[in-house]
Design a protein around this nucleic acid. Sequence first.
DNA 1: AAAATGACAAAAATAAAAATTTGTCATTTG
DNA 2: CAAATGACAAATTTTTATTTTTGTCATTTT
Lengths: 192, 192
Amino acid sequence: MAAPLAKEQILDTAEEVLRRFGLEKASVVDVARALGVSHGTLYRHFPSKSALREAVGERWLKRVSIPLAEIVKESGSSMEKLQKWFQTLIHTKRSKAIEDPELFSMYNALAEESVEGITAHINELIQQLTEIIEEGIRKNEFKRSDAGQVAAGIFYGTARFHHPALAKEWTSPNIDEEFRLVWNLLLSGLKF
Amino acid sequence: MAAPLAKEQILDTAEEVLRRFGLEKASVVDVARALGVSHGTLYRHFPSKSALREAVGERWLKRVSIPLAEIVKESGSSMEKLQKWFQTLIHTKRSKAIEDPELFSMYNALAEESVEGITAHINELIQQLTEIIEEGIRKNEFKRSDAGQVAAGIFYGTARFHHPALAKEWTSPNIDEEFRLVWNLLLSGLKF
DNA sequence: AAAATGACAAAAATAAAAATTTGTCATTTG
DNA sequence: CAAATGACAAATTTTTATTTTTGTCATTTT
């Protein structure tokens, strides 16, 4: 027989089956059939159906965080990077949410099945932001402050524009204007 | 017979039935039975089941906005009022969400059935904030700026802490700390 | 002996049948 | 005669019966 079944190969097929059949219709048997193996085999690689689903969800989160990590490493002013980072995060999510809302909410449901995976993902994003802000402080672009706390503040302050639970509001015609208002405040503040 | 059936009386009973039976179990027949009238009678007061449900949802939103309107009228510094306004909004929602999550999500689902009602509610809240901020600008407590835009910015920037779709995150032990971080940034900004 | 299989019980999902609810309206009530 | 009723059809929901899926494991394959 061919080489033993690889995890990545299973995940590729599982993803394909999930896309075709949808979150609630896709069964382990379907994935096994698409791979040309018995369903028992899949249980030798993943302990349960949820474990398989979680793995698909976590791989999807990685696809979001990897391009953002690239931006952190780029050259340019910290402010530019900060803006580009958010632009990318928000644009990526928004276009996926609008182009194929079903698929988007499927992947989000998948990811949410792994609370740990989500937490790790959010922490990773805030860590990326922290690095941008630390650099900005060093270069005197930003106020001296606890970079990690400011990173969390900006991330949570912009939640409306990237939190998947609020995706249905991203089709509003004012959404870009609303982001601009929040962004301005986060950068400059209300007080003198 | 008694006096003709009043709308408020129907809403009171509908609310009671919804609380007891839940969003999906409560039928028009149940409401009629609780009122001691035939279900046909209810259709002389509300054109459909959804219209009745929407009315219950909208009344619930009013119960949120009325106490906040009181705060706008109070005396004291604008900053104090701004803080108290958000404290009240967030605390009200949070305690309801945590004390009885089912009831909370039922009322939210109910309210969401009326997109118009929600829009009006949000606009009303932002209008209240606008008044606080306008006054703060007049009294030189806040930077000169478009009060309506700043109001919208603060409201949307704090969405994570009051948007019902994010209620499940309000049980996090760090939620107050996270609010503080966002609040500080919105007031003082990241930049010099 | 490592990897995969397929038969099996328990749990979950689906489909078909039965019962309830929604919404209308001609008739009745006060 | 304004307000309420209750019988009715169509739509929706609930119940029940049937089928499929999940997860295990002793056996088979390479």
